[in-house]
Design a protein around this nucleic acid. Structure first.
Lengths: 296, 296
DNA sequence: GTCCACTGTCCCGCTCAGTGGGACACATGC
DNA sequence: GCATGTGTCCCACTGAGCGGGACAGTGGAC
């Protein structure tokens, strides 16, 4: 878990995560594969370190992850997925509901994520210094480019979009598109990994799960793409995450040159191919401005 | 916790929350007063029912609430606030960090809310059927009115904004403004409470904490304001939550006439007073359309 | 109508997981 | 220098959380 880049400036600062014994690449798959416990067949992942976690709390958080794939789940569903007793699942859900992190649908009797979780999430987002600084510039970029704009940050071997400013068209295009992506299948991931050896290595270690026919699948192709990204100064993605959607991303780098975030524009492939050069220049410029403000 | 209105259509459906023994008005103060346990002097609130909650999970969630008021907190801070041992706080934080709900700032050694919490919150928001349905109409409203637009929903005796579409000016105006407000000091709260006796009563039971000099402070004034809201068909707020900010809200009502959400436009008082009538009509119309779509 | 298989909720007794106290190294300030 | 703070780690005790099982209610197949 690479933490510091989200709250710059911390150029060249220590990048150590907390010593929980969890491998650096772990978070990948969160919200994609809902929880480690739920996926006992997970590909080569170490089990959660037993030393630093509270079992019941960890299980409660596993319950939340279960909702990554399904809107609503019943007590038995969750008990089955997590391999716990039905009574335990019921107890966990009741506790989560009492704080509004989950809700019970009175019509179906099923449970779902709750309003208070959204509230806490908004709070977390509003605290991101990177986002606070970048927001006005991202607005400008959306206006000038006429495209949806993403602010990407690192989490493990993935990219998470900490902000997404939509255009009316982009809102439809991206509706339901995840906030988290493996870093090899997005322009943002390439832009950051090209200037961040740690992220690149974390991704190599975990591998290259395909999303579309165009997704990078081998270390060789990956390294080639990163080299090209370094040459251009921007990462480019054509339908490697979602077919038909392209994007251009520029890294936000600290004084040492290391990338810790990215900004990108996203749109239908047809719209982006036209004046790729102009778009690339635009995105690079804005990323530079953000980096400058954060270093001050 | 009034759950069903967030995922309409459920006109006239049962509105019972889960039977956790927690009084209906409880959630009020969440994110304002971080946690019940943290506020042993809380005014007449029943303690958390011991029967349905897992203690360690509940404490872990209390930890999250602690961050409502402060960006960053240390282990000792949290232990002191929650009245738990330092080692316990440390264990809880480690567990939360291992799942990304909190993060440790390597520079300060303090803890803060984590990126994954934001991710989960986005997921919760994207699942709200009310929001999904309303979004395109809210966009229209923003464009036509040129003002920031809020989608308000009920939680306990409070209003939570489940969506907030900003204008460039509104973004500055509302930066850092909470997502949760007691229902007596916002136009949204008035719009819903005027057509929702349960919310109105929950607010009367809890009381009327003042936010500005203009905030309603008595039951008499409150009932007067609700009557006026019923007469106009919209709720109006002039600097009752934040000085200098006004808003106009219309209720979204189910087939039985009961309000379960609101849409509102927000701006500097000076900008709204001008053509209040036109704005009110506009907001009412859009709210009607949303209600219609949700009843279908 | 009667099965059956499934649900969510609740109760209870066993035991292990979570608790607080305390030790420790380190940092800050008088 | 000492005093007081911090975060992290260890350990022994015990009560909190676990699973098993009972129960009522539901929905579908027949």
């Amino acid at each position: 878990m690479t933490l510091s880049p989200l709250h710059p400036p911390s150029p060249g600062g220590a990048r150590t995560g907390i010593p929980t014994g969890i491998p650096a690449g772990m978070p990948s798959g969160r919200l994609l594969a809902p929880s480690r416990r739920a996926v006992p067949t997970a590909i080569g992942r170490a089990p959660i370190s037993g030393s630093e976690t509270l079992k019941s709390v960890a299980t409660a958080l596993d319950v939340l992850e279960c909702f990554a794939l399904d809107d609503e789940l019943g007590v038995s569903d969750i008990a089955r997925r997590l391999g716990i007793a039905k009574s335990t699942a019921h107890r966990l859900l009741s506790t989560l509901c009492s704080r509004g992190l989950t809700e019970k649908n009175p019509d179906t009797g099923q449970y779902r994520l709750g309003l208070h979780l959204y509230e806490l999430g908004q709070l977390a987002q509003s605290r991101l210094k990177l986002r606070q600084t970048a927001l006005p510039l991202l607005e400008d970029l959306r206006r000038v480019s006429g495209l949806s704009v993403h602010l990407g940050v690192i989490d493990g071997a993935d990219i998470v979009y900490a902000e997404r400013l939509e255009t009316p068209a982009g809102r439809q295009l991206l509706a339901g598109v995840s906030r988290r992506w493996p870093s090899h299948c997005t322009s943002s991931g390439k832009a950051i990994a090209a200037f961040n050896a740690e992220l690149a290595q974390a991704r190599r270690d975990i591998g290259f799960p395909p999303r579309t026919t165009g997704t990078i699948r081998s270390v060789a192709d990956y390294d080639l793409a990163l080299a090209e990204t370094r040459r251009l100064g921007v990462g480019i993605g054509h339908g490697e995450a979602v077919a038909g959607i392209s994007s251009v991303a520029a890294p936000v780098r600290d004084l040492s040159g290391r990338a810790y975030a990215s900004i990108s524009v996203v749109g239908p492939s047809s719209a982006l191919i036209g004046d790729l050069d102009r778009t690339a220049r635009l995105v690079r410029t804005v990323a530079g401005h953000i980096a400058h403000r954060l270093s001050a």
